[in-house]
Amino acid sequence: MTLLGFLVLIAVAAIRLRDLFAVVMLFGVYSLLTAALFMNLDAVDVAFTEAAVGAGVSTVLMLSGLHLTSRWEQRPKRSPLLPLLVVGVTGAVLVHAMLDAPFVGDPQAPVQTHVTPYYIANAPVEVGMPNMVTAVLASYRGYDTFGETVVIFTAGLAVMLLLGIQQGTHNRPGLNAIGDQLVLRSVVKLLVPAILLYALYVQFHGDFGAGGGFQAGVIFATGFVLYDLAFGEGDARTVVPPGWLHRLAALGVLIYGGVGVYALLAGKPFLDYSALSADPVAGQHLGVLLVELGVGITVFAVILTIFYAFSGRGRRA
């Protein structure tokens, strides 16, 4: 309840403030509070995603977007009454719909009686994974996750079409006050391999604990974003050339879809991983591993694409 109150306060402050930098910081705090809320509900996987995506990468992306525009928001010229009316009506409809929803934790709620008992009873036998969230996400709900991966891929595609990644010299002469700091350079050099290793751990540990392709992709991309921030774009683009990124983004979706098509060709339903191996449980393991790898590759490539597209623009050489 207290956390929710804080969330409302931060939302109101973010609307009222005209200093966009402060708003970006408030969004970071908002995400961290949301992550704490999920943690409180014992949803570690969701909290993990929220902290990595909302507080980590989004803040960096919004800052790099903000530096293309002005720091201060302009006063709106028209009266905000009509939008307020629309938002108010929509909110009232949503609240009205909420009244029919069961309370949180109600044992009679459809969520608790319909599919959840099936997952809890059958997931350890059918998929054989300690982390039930990954079993549901990647196996039972494989279609939904495939859709999410395609959505992320489409978002990356849209950014690439609208902004594009500008090529050229990106050494930024005379702008290297932080980049020349020996301490920062050394620390980043030591930290980047550790972050990449941590991302791989999150990727492959998803079967057992919190983690999975979405979080791992974001953390992997954050490692390269950090490298870019410390050493400048020229160096980061030598490590991961922008030309690779759209191929990688497509590759991830292809891996995911390829697993589904393979199952189809083997005479099973689309994305039925038991077709991958003679033993159904081993097949499920292999399938979830491949699918999570596809998700991770796509998320990594798309996040880095967006960062390159924002940070390479509108800068005087």
Partner: peptide, 23 residues
């Protein structure tokens, strides 16, 4: 895992904010 993630987010965000003000 969460603590490690938070440490990473904190460091990257600090560097990003300093970069933002520098540019």
């Amino acid at each position: 895992d969460v603590a490690l993630l938070y440490a990473m987010v904190n460091f990257v965000a600090t560097v990003a904010v300093m970069r933002f003000f520098e540019y």
